[in-house]
């Protein structure tokens, strides 16, 4: 493993690089929020961040703990009601990228944030859907940020909270989902993308020092690897400096 940064840091940097100044991004809390806030402070100053609390075009000067911290409202272009954010902004397809996390994700990038185990007799009850099902359905595309492990990367999710590519090609169209669904899954080991033909998640990129075998070992299905496997460019000093000032890892 290359030293000088953590696997979480390169995951966050890789996720931030998916966003541009032209992007309108629906931001989930946690890793997605950290990545979006890194992007807006580095290469994507025009990034338009939306949180489901109704804060549109927000630019918090500190990283919020929740999706509704006061700093999000104070720095927003406008604050709208919850029905408005879902009905007027998300549903008609006005948002380019949905940034989501996951407790479990499967071969076709379906996402579970509801239960581990049986729904009526769960082993672990998770928080549930929140805004994710409709974010996954209606954003033009979805980027998922999740640490890669056999526990999280499973052949079939225990519960489909948010639809990725269903059971394969044609499922999103059949279900009437208008966005493209997950186009990238960013992990602490690399980047997965759905195969254009089969829609199956395929390893297309590894972070420096990570091998395809490392990623395959952390995946609960027989993970396909792209023939032209790329390597994530190292985080720049600027990216790391800004990220650490956000997360408090710089000790300031």
């Amino acid at each position: 493993m290359t030293t000088g940064y953590t696997s979480d840091e390169i995951m966050t940097v890789a996720a931030a690089r998916c966003l541009t100044s032209q992007t309108a991004c629906f931001v989930g809390i946690g890793l997605p929020s950290t990545a979006a806030n890194l992007a807006v402070r580095t290469h994507a100053p025009g990034l338009w961040m939306i949180y489901e609390s109704g804060t549109l075009g927000t630019r918090p000067d500190t990283l919020p703990l929740s999706i509704g911290d006061g700093v999000l409202a104070e720095t927003a272009d406008t604050v709208v009601s919850v029905p408005e954010v879902f009905n007027y902004w998300l549903q008609p397809g006005r948002i380019d990228v949905g940034f989501l996390g996951a407790a479990q994700i499967d071969r076709y990038a379906n996402i579970n944030t509801t239960v581990i185990g049986d729904y009526t007799d769960p082993k672990v009850r998770l928080p549930g859907a929140g805004g994710a099902p409709e974010i996954a359905a209606s954003c033009r595309e979805v980027v998922v940020i999740v640490r890669q492990s056999r526990r999280a990367f499973v052949e079939r999710v225990d519960f489909v909270t948010s639809v990725g590519h269903g059971a394969g090609p044609g499922d999103r169209e059949r279900l009437g989902l208008r966005g493209a669904g997950p186009t990238r899954v960013i992990t602490d080991l690399g980047v997965l993308e759905p195969d254009p033909a089969t829609r199956e998640l395929t390893l297309v990129q590894v972070h420096p020092g990570v091998s395809a075998e490392d990623a395959r070992a952390a995946t609960g299905w027989d993970l396909a690897v792209a023939p032209d496997l790329a390597t994530t460019p190292e985080p720049t000093p600027e990216e790391l400096k800004v990220l650490r000032s956000l997360t408090g890892a710089d000790g300031v």
Partner: peptide, 12 residues
Amino acid sequence: LRGYAGTDLVDQ
């Protein structure tokens, strides 16, 4: 609304 299509919430 446009929602829930394909999710397991529909069954539960």
